[in-house]
Amino acid sequence: MSANSKAYWRANIRLVLLLLSIWFTVSYGFGILLRDWMDQFQVGGFRLGFWFAQQGSIYVFVLLIFVYVYRMNRLDAKYGFGEGD
């Protein structure tokens, strides 16, 4: 494996771990562990802890998919692994 490939995969794994940690924090942390504390706030008439447990983690997951696609396209271009290469 070339040094370029190793750097690419290192950046890829770092990005995946970052995005998974964000999703874990939102879904498990906000939706379960901090739910009681977050219930003192409201979003659209619903308690915030309930909203994160039911909807928020799904929205964040979909948003993270788009962030992943955007960042991977930039990484592909940076390391020369684009679709045309």
Rank of each mutant, 00 (worst) to 15 (best):
R10A: 13
D39F: 04
S21E: 04
F81P: 06
L34G: 06
N73M: 09
G45V: 03
A7I: 07
M72K: 13
I58T: 10
I22D: 01
Q40K: 12
V60C: 01
W23L: 09
W37P: 09
V26W: 01
Y79C: 01
K6H: 14
S2K: 06
I13T: 01
Y8K: 03
I13C: 02
M72Q: 11
F81W: 02
W51I: 05
V69P: 07
Y79K: 04
Q40T: 13
A3G: 14
L64S: 00
V26P: 00
S57T: 12
N12K: 15
G56L: 02
Y28T: 09
R74V: 13
N4Q: 15
L63C: 13
A77C: 14
F24D: 08
M1R: 13
I58H: 04
Y59N: 12
S21Q: 05
I13R: 01
F30Y: 01
D36Q: 14
I32K: 10
K6Y: 12
A53S: 14
S27M: 02
W37F: 15
N12G: 10
S27D: 07
F66D: 08
A53E: 10
Y70T: 11
L48C: 11
S5Y: 15
Q42M: 12
Q42F: 12
K78A: 06
E83W: 15
L19R: 00
S2Y: 06
Y79S: 00
A7Y: 05
L64M: 05
Q54P: 09
N73P: 08
A77E: 12
R35N: 05
T25A: 15
I13Q: 02
D85Q: 07
F41C: 08
Q40G: 10
W37S: 14
D39E: 04
I58N: 06
D39G: 06
L64Y: 06
L18H: 07
V67A: 06
Y8P: 01
N73V: 11
A77I: 11
L34R: 02
N12M: 10
